[in-house]
Nucleic acid binder design. Structure first.
Length: 580
DNA sequence: ATAGGGTTAG
């Protein structure tokens, strides 16, 4: 049977698989050779040229008592990696587990746990965990790592941590699973701390970081927006030759762009000898975040013209986002209409934003109506945001109605609607919205800004006096106020929602977290140093104006990364060209 | 009866 073995290994398309299947059926080997059968099913289930349905049909045609653990493993592996991982769990729990034999082995559990991880499903993860213990597989490092990953993705980080600390042996994949789990669960400082612990460990039994480690920790740095940490990881990787991998370079491009150093990102992209789809997507998205839409479009065209790469959903999103942030409306529409794949919710969101910001609200509404699936709340919120910019009360009321019917009770909708009324000087409607907010107990997301000075992150809330130097900060704000008023600054209080007098409104604005962060940056860094601030919400109109004036009055570059993009203030102007 | 499983960028 050696010849069949080698035939199996040389299958390179579905027709080969079918011919071999036919041969096994005709010769009776399909039931006689369990090994050939299960390997054929597995190949068909997981190979890129395979066909999951065909593989499952082969599996189902195997008589139940004859099916070995390997047959089950092949089917569960294919389902776990496919579009519907839940079916892998159904097959395992409902069909395989009640039988015995065959008994599940480490491989069976590995594939089932992967399915649970892909589903972020905590309940099956726990069940599989206890089964793993009962089957005596606790000492299997790879299985424990798979389980740790499933807990981290569930997410149940305490359990992930517990597995990590109870493992007698951990290899590098184990560390990487926890580092990336922390980064993905919104705990990038912990991810970074774990990386530091590993990279400076004196324990000779601890593994050396590899390219996977670098990729995971760079994603944490990107989330943190910490150029200092990101660049330190880059140095670490370069010294050890870990930056040779294209995936590491892609992660570097992403990290530098998200830490404000988009030119360094572009330099790494250009210097990279190998460029994958992800490389292009990373740099196009990076340029988009910085409002450099023309360059984003240029690279997108280059990708289409001079590579074999086919743009995917992320590529289109990145280039549309670039057009939106740069006000390139017609170019963005052209990209949208030329899409070779079905647009998803985010693509629609980007186009609605693109049209809405440009004042083309009717067309934006038309795009939503043309969708073949139901728009979600975020999409309606995007349109509501456009109504605020354009001051369109009619549409804003209709959209808000839709949002409330959909059960949305976030503060964003109320604030946007109220802003539309305020822009039209309809103060009684503003008051009515405010009353509704009170009676519905709407929770506001507090604005938080952060700035890093000499490796220490300082966090500010609106109006907060927690910082040890708060007196100096507020004194600095007073001085800033005086200097920029001399340049013609008039506070824009139209978006302040509180039921307070004009002077108090000015004070509320004046204490926005991003202003506190910038003021602290001014007093704690030498003249000429750029000030970097990160905000958890979008920057407000008044803070935007103030930042522009500070950049002129104090001759400082101020870079603000908000929820959606970067603003770079210099000499009284912003890189967004006030289009945002 | 052979082997096969884990982490990792946009």
């Amino acid at each position: 049977m050696a010849h069949l073995d080698s035939l199996l290994q040389r299958c390179s398309n579905l027709s080969h698989i079918k011919q071999l299947h036919a041969h096994l059926l005709v010769t009776g080997l399909f039931s006689l050779s369990a090994s050939l059968r299960s390997r054929l099913v597995e190949l068909c289930a997981v190979a890129s040229f395979g066909d999951l349905h065909y593989a499952l049909a082969m599996f189902r045609s195997t008589p139940r008592p004859a099916a070995t653990t390997n047959d089950w493993n092949a089917a569960i592996r294919g389902l776990a990696a496919g579009p519907d991982p839940a079916s892998a769990l159904l097959l395992f729990f409902r069909e395989m587990l009640p039988l015995s034999p065959p008994r599940p082995d480490a491989l069976t559990l590995s594939f089932a746990i992967r399915a649970a991880a892909r589903l972020s499903a905590i309940h099956p993860t726990r069940q599989l965990h206890s089964l793993l213990l009962r089957l005596g597989l606790a000492a299997d490092v790879r299985l424990a790592t798979t389980l740790l990953d499933a807990y981290a993705k569930a997410p149940d980080l305490p359990s992930a941590h517990q597995i990590f600390s109870e493992m007698p042996l951990r290899d590098i994949a184990t560390w990487n699973a926890l580092i990336s789990g922390l980064a993905l669960s919104d705990r990038p400082p912990d991810a970074l701390a774990l990386f530091r612990r590993l990279s400076s460990s004196p324990d000779p039994f601890d593994p050396a970081p590899n390219d996977g480690t670098i990729i995971a920790v760079l994603s944490a740095c990107a989330q943190l927006g910490s150029l200092r940490d990101g660049a330190a990881v880059h140095d670490y990787a370069r010294v050890r030759g870990l930056d040779a991998d294209v995936r590491v370079r892609n992660a570097l491009v992403d990290m530098y762009a998200k830490c404000g150093a988009v030119d360094r990102a572009a330099a790494i992209f250009r210097a990279s000898p190998e460029k994958t789809l992800v490389s292009y997507n990373a740099i196009i998205m990076g340029l988009a975040l910085h409002g450099r839409g023309a360059e984003a479009l240029h690279l997108f065209d280059e990708m289409l013209r001079s590579t074999e790469l086919e743009p995917d959903a992320v590529s289109y999103l990145a280039v549309l986002c670039g057009c939106t942030h740069a006000g390139l409306v017609d170019e963005g529409l052209r990209v949208f209409r030329s899409m070779r794949i079905r647009p998803n919710m985010k693509h629609y969101g980007s186009v609605v934003d693109l049209l809405g910001r440009a004042g083309r609200l009717t067309e934006a509404y038309g795009v939503i109506e043309s969708m073949t699936f139901a728009p979600d709340m975020v999409l309606w919120q995007t349109l509501l945001g456009a109504c605020r910019i354009q001051g369109d009360v009619d549409l804003a009321e209709r959209v808000s109605q839709k949002l409330f019917e959909m059960g949305s009770n976030g503060c964003g909708n109320y604030v946007l609607l109220s802003n539309v009324y305020a822009a039209n000087r309809r103060w009684s409607d503003v008051g009515r919205v405010r009353e509704t907010m009170k009676s519905n107990d709407v929770k506001k997301i507090p604005g938080i800004s952060m700035t890093e000075i000499e490796g220490v992150v300082h966090t500010f809330y609106n109006g907060d006096k927690e910082h040890e130097r708060w007196r100096e900060i507020y004194r600095s704000l007073d001085e800033i106020g005086a200097r920029i008023k001399a340049l013609g600054y008039v506070p824009d209080t139209s978006n302040v929602l509180h039921d307070i007098g004009e002077e108090d409104k000015e004070n509320a604005l004046y204490q926005h977290s991003e202003k506190l962060a910038v003021a602290f940056g001014l007093i704690s860094t030498p003249v000429g140093t750029p000030i970097q601030v990160m905000k958890n919400l979008r920057i407000c109109g008044d803070c935007h104006t103030v930042a522009k004036l500070i950049s002129r009055a104090y001759d400082r570059v101020i870079v603000v990364r908000d929820l959606a993009r970067f603003h770079r203030f210099e000499g009284g102007d912003c890189s967004c060209g006030d289009y945002w």
